[in-house]
Amino acid sequence: MTYLKKSPWVIHYDASSCNGCDIEVLAALTPVYDVERFGIINTGNPKHADIFLVTGSVNEQNKEVVKNIYEQIPEPKVVVAIGICAASGGIFRECYNVLGGVDKVIPVDVFVTGCAARPESIIDGVVTALGILETKRLAMKEKGNETMDKSGSAV
């Protein structure tokens, strides 16, 4: 974890999950699992966030909401799709109102498996995301001033 120079903040959105993964995301933030010890804080404001945790599959109604939150998160950003519903729709994939995995709407960097995903796997997913975040940051840095001006978050 030497690359963890900063405190990445996460934002969580429940696309159309059954709640199982959502409460496990919250469980990961609370004492027993406690990702806050890595400086990871759950925020409600997309503009504060670096990592976007999405649970559940997307549908016609929340498609725009998911896209909107994604667009508001400043670069560099990482998307973690949590649970099987966020990957493919899971048990609900044949439902009329389910469009499919989150990757149909926004690019996903990490998929966390499980129904419901266990807090341990969620933490693992977030830690993987941190590595990707760092790669993205370096890539942005190399690209130079152009992108840096826009993002402001690159070192």
Partner: peptide, 11 residues
């Protein structure tokens, strides 16, 4: 409501 309507009663 309707943001997480899945319609699985039809399953």
């Amino acid at each position: 409501i309707g943001y997480i309507h899945r319609g699985f009663e039809k399953l």
